[in-house]
């Protein structure tokens, strides 16, 4: 079996087990939809196998020139989307602190008024004819990615009587192994709604929630054009197996 790591690394051991307590709890009565949708029985924990250690790869040929520019990628006539222009950038790393190069990053978000372009969203705020709300890119050799977009608005949602989502951007990352698959959300520094959000509060370890809050990054802001926010993402790593026998041919 061919080594599936692509950094020139020779170690391709099992995935490091997930630290589940560092993730949100599956069942949280304050986030009502989690109540009927969370498994009740314990997960079956097992060392990863080739089924989890391999994963789909996507090449740069997948991408169109505006795929990571949400200000323009839904515009019909070149008019920019309405909103506060921002650069969202960062790196994808693994738990061994190594960059994860050439991996697909997808994002989706509400428009500047807090409205999604989705049949299920009927919030009062209007749609922006020039804003779709999705983008994608592939990390470079150092694991870096960037998107040009607008800052999404906060919006109310049906949960408790008066719940509002903080401003956030959804992020989906593949890594190189199906077992690394992760979807999360980026919040914005200084947003007072973060501490009132029952979805953010499904993460019980405060230091972990803090890792989802992107700082303003003036070093990457472009004068007279856009502000910048930095958001690094860490995926599961693989355990080095120097003292272990490897499966024949693996």
């Amino acid at each position: 079996m061919k080594d599936m790591t692509d950094n020139g690394e020779t170690d391709a051991g099992p995935l490091i087990p997930r630290q589940r307590h560092m993730h949100p709890v599956p069942y949280d009565p304050e986030y009502k939809t989690s109540v009927p949708r969370s498994p009740k029985w314990p997960l079956l924990s097992m060392e990863s196998t080739p089924s989890e250690e391999t994963g789909p790869r996507f090449g740069h040929s997948l991408l169109g020139p505006l795929d990571n520019n949400l200000i323009l990628n839904f515009s019909k006539d070149g008019s920019p989307a309405i909103g506060e222009r921002i650069l969202m950038h960062g790196r994808v790393l693994d738990e061994n602190a190594r960059p994860v190069p050439h991996t697909l990053v997808e994002i989706w978000q509400a428009n500047a008024g807090g409205r999604y372009r989705h049949v299920k969203d009927n919030y009062l705020a209007p749609l922006d004819p020039n804003f779709g709300g999705c983008g994608r890119t592939i990390t470079d050799a150092e694991g870096r990615y960037q998107f040009l977009t607008i800052r999404p608005g906060a919006y109310p949602w049906p949960n408790r009587a008066n719940d509002w989502r903080p401003m956030h951007i959804h992020i989906s990352v593949f890594g190189h192994s199906f077992g690394q698959r992760l979807i999360t959300q980026m919040y914005f520094e200084g947003d007072p709604l973060i501490d009132r959000c029952p979805i953010a509060a499904t993460i019980k370890e405060r230091s972990q929630l803090d890792r989802l809050v992107a700082p303003l990054d003036m070093a990457r802001a472009r004068p007279l054009d856009f502000l910048a926010y930095k958001f690094d993402i860490v995926l599961r790593g693989r355990r080095q197996t120097m003292f272990e026998n490897r499966l024949e041919g693996m």
């Binding site: 490091i16 989706w108 989705h118 779709g132 959804h170 860490v234």
Partner: peptide, 21 residues
């Protein structure tokens, strides 16, 4: 030297916009 995995958050009701537009 190791880092902790970024915590997950729900994909939400509008995951289709981002993943299968």
């Amino acid at each position: 030297d190791t880092m902790i995995e970024t915590p997950s958050q729900t994909a939400g009701p509008y995951v289709h916009i981002g993943c299968i537009p």
